[in-house]
């Protein structure tokens, strides 16, 4: 839990610890298209939540907003009670400075559908780059951590390889190690197996299941792998048209969906 960050009025007035993530009246438009509107939800500390829904329902946008890859059109996102991109001061919405945003963003990591490893660096350098240059770790320390993480994802023997020499599944496991090297409180997984050959999916999900079991990292997962969602997450949120249409624990959601839209969606994909 971050202790060095300045608490906002929100966090200061509340006696309970602030939720890990809070979306408050979030709106996101791309041009004239509204993707998310009046979206409110909270994610608890250590909670693992899967977002499902048809494409265009806004689930990936939620992850991208949290990672500050997209600008919020309106509303607020709070991380541990701290404002992510916009703060409320005297009832006004104020955009934060890049340095302030970076402070909170450091607590968040993301794994992408397309891996997005840096092809000009070795596997090891991909993992140590940010710990050295963002967290200020020494090279030796970063290397040691990286090798431990590579062990965990089963790729220690490929530390000196370049990403182009690896299979998609191996690249994605390196990408997971790279995100974990930043010791994030929140891990965003954006369709991490969608670009993989079917026989490589299992290894990647296995690594993520291990992370879920052995850490208390809060996870937000966008996936079409329903078995994985069921195994890993404590809550599933069904999105449609930028709104949460239903949310429930996975067993309930996948066996007895209440909402008609959810039923149709699950029928179509399972």
């Amino acid at each position: 839990m971050p202790t060095d960050s300045t608490p906002t009025t929100e966090a200061a007035t509340s006696t309970d610890p602030a939720p890990r993530i809070e979306f408050e009246d979030v709106e996101k438009k791309f041009g004239k298209t509204t993707v998310l509107k009046d979206l409110n939800f909270t994610i608890g500390r250590g909670e693992r939540v899967t977002l499902i829904g048809p494409s265009g329902s806004g689930k990936t946008t939620i992850l991208r907003l949290l990672m500050t890859l997209e600008d919020l059109t309106d509303g607020y996102i709070w991380v541990d009670g701290d404002p992510l991109t916009h703060d409320r001061r005297d009832g006004k919405r104020v955009e934060l400075k890049p340095k302030q945003i970076a402070q909170v963003r450091k607590r968040i990591g993301m794994v992408f559908q397309q891996f997005n490893l840096f092809p000009n660096m070795s596997v090891l350098d991909n993992i140590t780059e940010a710990p050295i240059h963002v967290l200020g770790q020494s090279k030796d320390e970063a290397k040691e951590n990286a090798l431990t993480l590579l062990d965990r994802v089963g790729l220690r023997n490929r530390a000196d390889a370049h990403p182009t020499q690896l299979s998609g599944g191996q690249q994605q496991r390196v990408a997971i190690a790279r995100a974990l090297a930043m010791d994030p409180e929140i891990l965003l997984l954006d369709e991490v197996t969608s670009a993989l050959d079917p026989e490589l999916v299992g290894d990647v999900l296995g690594v993520l299941e291990d992370v879920a079991e052995t850490t208390d990292i809060t996870m937000l997962i966008v996936t079409h792998e329903m078995q994985f969602a069921r195994d890993v997450s404590q809550r599933v949120m069904m999105f449609d048209g930028g709104q949460i249409v239903e949310e429930a624990p996975p067993e309930e959601m996948f066996t007895r969906p209440k909402n008609e839209r959810t039923q149709k969606f699950l029928e179509a994909i399972i």
């Binding site: 890859l69 450091k106 990591g109 992408f112 997005n116 940010a130 963002v134 995100a179 930043m182």
Partner: peptide
């Protein structure tokens, strides 16, 4: 995706350019 991965790792802008 390269820019986005750099943002996700909170790499400073100058470091993103250089590395």
């Amino acid at each position: 995706g390269q820019w986005e991965a750099a943002t996700a790792l909170s790499l400073p802008r100058s470091r993103t350019w250089r590395a």
